[in-house]
């Protein structure tokens, strides 16, 4: 791996476990609060859960794989680009849809947190598809 690739700093692999643990904790918290086992307001639960999930997804994304090489970096960068373009496309599509059809779609009212979570999803879908494609061909 050359110096430019070494400059592509990622968190150590064990951070993936931390991210999954955080997702688990937020899921348990959400279940406990919706079943009224913990008396917490719904807005507060949503705020907590969404933000923890967002942080977890970010940690998952910037944690290195067991084997990190130049092909992985290339796929990672392509996935970032795909997620960013999809996020912009989703936002623009939402605005155009509401302007032409004059209805408030969920795409227009999407919060920044939801948009970012969807962008992470696009990132993972791309990564999964490319890795699976590489294995099968």
């Amino acid at each position: 791996m050359n110096n430019t690739q070494k400059d592509f700093k990622l968190l150590p692999t064990y951070f993936k476990k931390i991210a999954f643990a955080l997702i688990g904790i937020s899921a348990i918290f959400w279940i406990l609060s919706t079943t009224k086992l913990i008396p917490i307001e719904r807005e507060l639960t949503e705020l907590f859960t969404k933000n923890i999930i967002l942080i977890s997804l970010l940690i998952l994304t910037i944690s290195s794989n067991k084997i990190e090489d130049e092909l992985t970096h290339k796929i990672r960068l392509k996935a970032f680009a795909f997620a960013f373009i999809s996020g912009v496309a989703l936002t623009v599509f939402g605005s155009i849809t509401s302007a032409f059809f004059s209805f408030q779609s969920s795409l227009v009212n999407m919060s920044p947190t939801s948009l970012l979570i969807q962008m992470f999803m696009f990132y993972y879908v791309f990564m999964f598809a490319v890795k699976k494609g590489n294995r099968e061909k």
Partner: peptide, 8 residues
């Protein structure tokens, strides 16, 4: 020092 997928 790369993955098998890279060689493939």
């Amino acid at each position: 020092g790369v993955s098998r997928q890279t060689i493939n």
